[in-house]
């Protein structure tokens, strides 16, 4: 546990020293800030963060892989993996620490956006409904878990950051596109419920309306866990080669 924490702390700090980290934060805040001031923060528009959440969800698609791409790949490329894997640390702790650092980074990136809520509360006359806002943030964090865990797996498989980034991005895009196109097609009964279950967009829509469904939370967390287990296996396999 101490070791996983040590790995997480080091990785979190190093994300702030990498250009990819800063560029991700800067672009994310720039784009969400623009949308907030041009669409949400206008006289007459409803006091909700719908537009912000919709945009953030899409922005996570490139941002999450950009953060996760270096987690393991950089260790392989620089060779520091040899120091890490000969320390008294289990492979599970390594992956857990790395993932926690990336998730912490995304949460840090989301933190300044709480300012939008304050602005809304102060300025809007019918105060914003807290339900969709809480659900929206929860949804962003759950999405980040899923995206980052896929990214951790990709990064654990290759020493190339570019490859890890592209593999993650295309996997996530594929997942979204396939599940939403298949959901709109009329499939026979056993298949359509399976697709509906897999569909990310359906679950995101629920969150957007302010519904916090436990089954959605379990869905995101269990898939994230599964990808992290695979990432740990990929790391352990390197000892065998």
């Amino acid at each position: 546990m101490t070791a996983a924490l040590a790995i997480a702390t080091r990785e979190y700090r190093s994300l702030f020293r990498s250009p990819a980290g800063w560029i991700s934060i800067a672009l994310f805040l720039l784009l969400t800030g623009t949308v907030f001031s041009l669409i949400t923060f206008q006289p007459g528009s409803p006091a909700s963060l719908q537009a912000f959440f919709a945009l953030s969800g899409w922005l996570l698609l490139p941002v999450a892989p950009a953060i996760s791409m270096k987690l393991m790949s950089d260790e392989y490329r620089v060779g520091t993996i040899e120091m890490l894997l000969t320390s008294p640390v289990s492979d599970v702790s390594v992956i857990a620490g790395k993932f926690a650092a990336a998730l912490g980074f995304v949460i840090t990136m989301l933190a300044p956006t709480l300012l939008y809520i304050i602005v809304l509360i102060v300025s809007a006359d019918p105060a914003p409904d807290p339900g969709p806002i809480v659900a929206g943030y929860l949804c962003l964090i759950l999405l980040s878990c899923l995206f980052l865990s896929v990214g951790t797996l990709a990064s654990a498989l290759t020493p190339s950051q570019t490859l890890a980034f592209l593999a993650t991005l295309f996997f996530l895009l594929g997942l979204l596109v396939v599940s939403s196109t298949l959901a709109s097609a009329n499939l026979p009964p056993p298949l359509d419920s399976a697709i509906a279950w897999l569909s990310l967009t359906r679950r995101i829509r629920d969150f957007a309306t302010g519904v916090i469904d436990l089954s959605h939370i379990v869905f995101f967390l269990s898939w994230s866990l599964w990808f992290l287990v695979l990432a740990t296996a990929a790391l352990t396999m390197r000892r065998w080669r």
């Binding site: 101490t2 924490l5 702390t9 190093s14 620089v78 520091t80 040899e82 120091m83 008294p88």
Partner: peptide, 20 residues
């Protein structure tokens, strides 16, 4: 191989933590 962005003191502190 050592993380290039860290200073020697930071790096040793990290290793010391890893080794408990």
């Amino acid at each position: 191989p050592i993380y290039p962005e860290m200073t020697p003191r930071e790096y040793l502190a990290h290793r010391a933590r890893l080794f408990g």
